[in-house]
């Protein structure tokens, strides 16, 4: 008699546990779906290449200086400031002289500045480079592939990449001289 009562109790407990497990797992699956939807929705417009990700390689023709091809992989071991700009972009014109003024000092320290122009032809870029006497490498992204690759939406946009090829900072919009120097210090190779 006692064993029967106990068995009934045990079965009751088992059923209860099963119910809890069933309900919990269904609620958990639903919760996971909701979290997935919300997270995807909020990261939808965020860039793929951001702080902490590896900067993907590209190769473009250099317009100024000694010419030739510049690829990001060739700059491994150096800090790289990757600047997206265009001659028709007002704020870009403002920050170019800052970059030029800091370039010689940081080039010594192992930091390279690479400016990727979005212009449609070489002429406007070269005239601009001559006018502002820019000595750091200037390349032109003819088809906008590099812009697409880096998912840059606004000009100017600047990525600071450390010696290991990892993006340390991403800035949309114009930089001041102070901020620029601060970021350049961050990517100095040790």
């Amino acid at each position: 008699m006692l064993s029967k009562v106990e068995e009934a109790k045990k079965q009751k407990q088992r059923k209860k546990n099963l119910r809890l497990l069933f309900r919990s797992s269904i609620l958990l699956v639903l919760l996971a779906a909701v979290v997935f939807a919300l997270v995807s929705n909020f990261t939808k417009d965020k860039t793929v290449i951001g702080v902490g990700t590896e900067a993907p390689n590209f190769k473009l023709e250099r317009l100024n200086g000694e010419g030739g091809e510049v690829s990001l992989d060739d700059l491994k071991g150096k800090g790289v400031m990757l600047n997206f700009w265009a001659t028709y972009c007002g704020p870009c014109k403002e920050e170019m002289p800052y970059m030029e003024s800091l370039y010689p000092e940081y080039k010594e320290k192992g930091v390279e500045i690479l400016a990727v122009s979005m212009d449609s032809n070489d002429l406007v870029v070269n005239r601009f480079v001559d006018k502002y006497e820019l000595s750091f490498p200037i390349v032109r992204d003819n088809g906008g592939q590099v812009l697409e690759l880096y998912d840059v939406g606004e000009l100017p946009s600047t990525l600071f990449i450390n010696a290991d090829g990892e993006v340390v900072e991403k800035v949309s919009g114009e930089l001041t001289l102070d901020r620029l120097e601060g970021y350049l210090k961050k990517i100095e190779p040790q």
């Binding site: 265009a86 028709y88 007002g90 032809n121 406007v124 005239r127």
Partner: peptide, 19 residues
């Protein structure tokens, strides 16, 4: 000497609005 694909006057200096 200068080429402005989409010319406009920006504060008295010629400039381009786009490429």
């Amino acid at each position: 000497d200068q080429y402005f694909p989409e010319y406009y006057m920006d504060d008295g200096t010629p400039a381009s609005q786009s490429k």
